[in-house]
């Protein structure tokens, strides 16, 4: 099967649907029309740009440029993780905590997949490494952001409970154990659910894309299984790292609950 090339007219017809939605929003006074159109323009420009970037990356297959691209993706994901939290850690920790855990987990998992599982030549072959890392980061970002948001806001709400447990002589790790566990579950459940529902409720995007471009369905399915496993473990490990570091950071060297380390805390 040959891939059917899309023309500008094809995309314009799809864009009509978005305009129709914006019109509907206007009629129903949802006040979303501006956002709908702006987001549609953003998606067009951003995707076109990344298409150009990928085109030149694929042409060169240069490790330096591929790494640069990977770190830009990581930096943006790190910022996103921080912005999705109501009370992130203040200072460098707010940014560094999510970014570091995503770096360790996503990069390690992606490199493992490239080197050991797929065995691309060279291992950083951009056609594989960039999409793989992108999918890893996108999902890991969700997990880490959910877990950290849960951790910091629960600690904030339950500070009296935590201090009670400390006052009864519990170690910091025990005093925050229920909250950590809850945060871990919150971070990991979406990807676990996605694994369980894959193929029945949803056809994962990557597999769909491969099938659209002519790959045999079973080959596409094998890749999707690989990706699912990588994403699930990568998200899980990153969530564990972020939650553990975050929980530790909530206490000072004398194991006192230190909520002043969160931004928007209003604590002296």
């Amino acid at each position: 099967m040959q891939i059917i090339q899309l023309t500008v007219q094809d995309l314009s017809m799809a864009a009509l649907l978005v305009l129709l939605l914006a019109g509907l929003s206007f009629v129903m006074r949802l006040q979303l029309e501006r956002q709908i159109i702006l987001s549609a323009i953003r998606t067009t420009i951003q995707l076109l740009l990344i298409g150009l970037v990928l085109k030149s990356l694929f042409a060169g297959s240069n490790l330096f440029w591929i790494s640069l691209m990977a770190f830009v993706m990581l930096a943006v994901a790190g910022r996103e993780v921080m912005q999705r939290q109501k009370r992130p850690f203040s200072g460098w920790w707010g940014y560094g905590l999510g970014t570091l855990s995503m770096f360790v987990s996503s990069f390690a998992t992606a490199i493992f997949a490239l080197l050991v599982v797929i065995g691309t030549q060279p291992w950083y072959l951009p056609q594989y490494s960039i999409p793989l890392l992108g999918m890893m980061l996108g999902n890991t970002m969700n997990g880490v952001a959910l877990a950290l948001d849960r951790l910091t806001s629960s600690a904030w709400q339950q500070r009296a409970v935590i201090e009670t447990r400390l006052s009864l002589g519990q170690e910091w790790s025990e005093a925050i154990r229920d909250i950590s566990r809850d945060s871990l579950r919150t971070g990991m459940l979406p990807i676990i659910n996605a694994m369980a529902a894959a193929g029945i409720v949803s056809l994962p995007g990557m597999m769909t894309g491969q099938i659209l471009s002519g790959a045999p369905p079973l080959e596409a399915v094998k890749y999707q299984i690989l990706i699912m496993f990588m994403i699930a473990s990568g998200t899980g490990f990153a969530t564990v790292i972020a939650t553990w570091l975050g929980a530790r950071r909530l206490f000072d060297a004398r194991q006192r609950l230190s909520l002043y380390r969160l931004s928007n805390s209003g604590v002296k």
């Binding site: 009296a160 409970v161 009670t164 447990r165 009864l168 002589g169 170690e171 004398r254």
Partner: peptide, 23 residues
């Protein structure tokens, strides 16, 4: 106090907070 593990210190110097909390 600074030379004793904090959790151990708090077990030895028991503080009853004015409001009780339960987990």
């Amino acid at each position: 106090c600074d030379h004793i593990n904090p959790a151990q210190w708090r077990r030895r110097v028991g503080l009853l907070l004015p409001e009780s909390h339960w987990w």
